[in-house]
Design a protein around this nucleic acid. Structure first.
Length: 557
RNA sequence: GCGCCUGUAGCUCAGUGGAUAGAGCAUCGGCCUCCGAAGCCGAGGGUCGGAGGUUCGAAUCCUCUCAGGCGCACCA
């Protein structure tokens, strides 16, 4: 419905321009029209500041522009009146007949309500989690997973064609270290005395891996030299740990379209090809035995090594090849979801896009800030090096996937997040998770009650009865629901899925008080049906929003 | 030292240059004989870290500054 409002304002601006009362300079480009719910009822239903945005362009006073636009908009069928207020706000009062139509539109669209077309089918890749298969997913990965997955949902809803991708760092020094650690744990389990080097993976999960290795292979490698069998242990361990990561993500209800192996880049010679491509563009040189990418010419702080003097390729070289591959695959936008501790890496990856002659705006990097895990307000210690960090699995098992995802999506991702385990579990008002879900369950139960009372709510009811919804609370709910499509679009545009969380909390915050105050099922048959229609649509919008967050909309709690 | 992120109510945070800065929690006081009390109603709470600047207008943009977090590898 919001698109309709935007259309009214756009047309009105154009009318004012044609009439000569607003003069747009030759460039002729209108600023984006932004319409918001009015802050106060006396400011109408919706407001726009378009006149104030046009003022500097047209060099005309904002109030005069506003008056011209408001006059044009007043003649629109849906508009009751338009007022100019303050420095140049246009306050739009819509006709009462607009709201039944808006509500009917939501009911008609159902599960599709909220879907938009602003993405125009453009291809977007969202790469997220991409945790090394050297250990379990920790809580920070979980936040990245929730944000990445929800962002992908939101982009898809806004009309983009989305690919979800997990990049697997399945080669390099950390994998070698993993293999060596597994090798040592293997010996330990077979009764040998071992000495675990400082840079080993110290978590018990490597013992689990070694135990499984024994089940499959027995003690046949116990007398082998590490160098001879390291690859066997590395391969075994990384596969097992990746399987666990996949299992964790599946239980967190996250599915990837593509699992992209770093090794596969080498198998297809894509790393060499990428370097060759960059060499031809003049950004590759050799110095002190190493091969360098001249990223300083592309906005980075210092040049970066692609191939070490010892001959090994760096992790960066793979990543260069991977991102060039993303470009060749035809994505118009590439989204990388990274832990905030990787922000030092941003410059060199942007440089790759610039080196390829592309606008690096096509790369969007979402940084996921730290999660501070609390229990009853007291911090839960973390620290991967010691091998005693809190895993996603532990938290998910303790508080449930729904609460977990909701907490991760309660804040914008570049703000630190306090996650209180006890709070997330509490079935009490101070837990924000259930407020929204309860809204959905409550509505389902209203329909259960209606059925008991023999009140039938049919899909093809007479829309005329919706004009019985005249209470302020009822209209406020409809107005908020009318903003859902806009919210999804803004969420996609800014790549901020947490906006959906806030939107749903607000919707529930309108519904619960309404429910307490107003009886839905009464002797008045028409009013009952109209209110059931309202309830139905709130349930629909809540379910649609929760789906974008990857959270269940329960019928019962 | 350089770079990035964050400073908004007691706490945790919303707030694409616009109107008198908003929620939730916590605190205090009320509400279950009636569609789910995981809910509702009411009250108090603010130098938007600080200082300049840009402008009709700044929590929002720019500069400086203070505080916290993170990063500055031929590691990944």
């Amino acid at each position: 419905m919001k698109a309709g409002l935007k259309g009214i304002i756009t047309a009105s601006v154009q009318k004012a321009v044609q009439a000569g009362s607003v003069q747009i300079p030759d460039s002729g480009k209108l600023p984006d029209i932004i319409i918001d719910r009015s802050k106060k009822d006396e400011f109408g239903d919706f407001s726009t500041n378009i006149a104030m945005l046009l003022a500097p362009l047209t060099k005309q006073p904002p109030r005069r522009i506003a008056e011209a636009v408001a006059a044009a908009a007043s003649s629109d069928d849906a508009v009751e009146k338009c007022e100019v207020a303050g420095p140049g706000f246009i306050n739009i009062f819509l006709k009462k007949t607009y709201w039944p139509a808006a509500l009917a539109d939501i009911l008609k669209k159902g599960a599709d309500y909220g879907k938009g077309t602003s993405g125009r089918g453009r291809k977007v890749q969202v790469e997220f989690v991409s945790a090394n298969p050297t250990g379990p997913l920790h809580i920070g990965h979980g936040r990245g997973a929730a944000v990445g997955d929800s962002l992908a949902n939101v982009l898809a809803a806004a009309g983009y064609e989305v690919t979800r991708e997990f990049y697997i760092n399945d080669r390099g020094r950390q994998i070698d270290t993993l293999g060596r650690t597994a090798f040592l744990r293997y010996h330990e389990l077979l009764g040998r005395k071992i000495d675990l080097p400082e840079d080993s993976y110290k978590g018990d999960y490597v013992k689990d891996v070694a135990r499984d290795f024994i089940l499959k292979n027995g003690d046949r490698y116990v007398d082998s030299a590490l160098d001879d069998v390291q690859k066997i242990f590395s391969d075994f361990a990384k596969k097992e740990l990746l399987d666990r990561i996949k299992k964790d993500l599946m239980d967190f209800r996250i599915e990837f379209d593509v699992w992209y192996s770093e090794i596969s880049l080498y198998e297809r010679s894509l790393v060499e090809k990428a370097i060759e491509e960059l060499r031809q563009r003049g950004f590759v040189y050799e110095e002190e035995g190493a091969l360098w990418l001249k990223t300083t010419a592309l906005g980075d702080d210092k040049d970066r090594v692609l191939r070490k003097a010892g001959g090994d390729m760096t992790y960066f070289a793979s990543d260069v090849a991977y991102h060039i591959e993303k470009i060749h695959r035809g994505f118009t936008t590439v989204v990388d979801v990274w832990g905030a501790d990787h922000h030092g890496y941003e410059g060199r990856i942007r440089a790759v896009f610039r080196a390829m002659g592309l606008d690096d705006k096509m790369l969007r990097i979402i940084f996921i800030q730290l999660v501070a895990l609390l229990r009853d307000g007291a911090p839960v210690p973390m620290g991967k090096r010691e091998g005693e960090f809190v895993t996603l699995r532990q938290v998910m098992d303790e508080v449930g996937a729904d609460a977990c995802r909701f907490f991760f999506l309660m804040r914008k991702s570049d703000a630190q997040l306090d996650f209180d385990l006890e709070l997330a579990k509490k079935q009490a008002p101070e837990n924000p998770v259930y407020y929204v879900q309860y809204c959905h369950a409550r509505i389902k139960s209203i329909f259960g009650f209606a059925k008991e009372k023999g009140v039938a709510f049919l899909e093809d009811f007479d829309e005329g009865i919706l004009k019985r919804l005249v209470e302020k609370e009822e209209l406020d709910i409809i107005k908020h629901m009318a903003m859902f499509e806009e919210t999804v679009e803004k969420s996609a545009l800014h790549m901020e899925p947490h906006r959906i969380t806030f939107y749903l909390t607000e919707l529930a915050g309108l519904f619960h008080p309404y429910y307490s105050k107003t009886r839905v099922i009464t002797d008045d048959a028409e009013a009952t049906l109209a209110r059931l229609a309202l309830c139905k649509s709130v349930g629909t919008v809540t379910a649609n929003g929760l789906k974008l967050l990857g959270i269940n909309a329960p019928d019962k709690m």
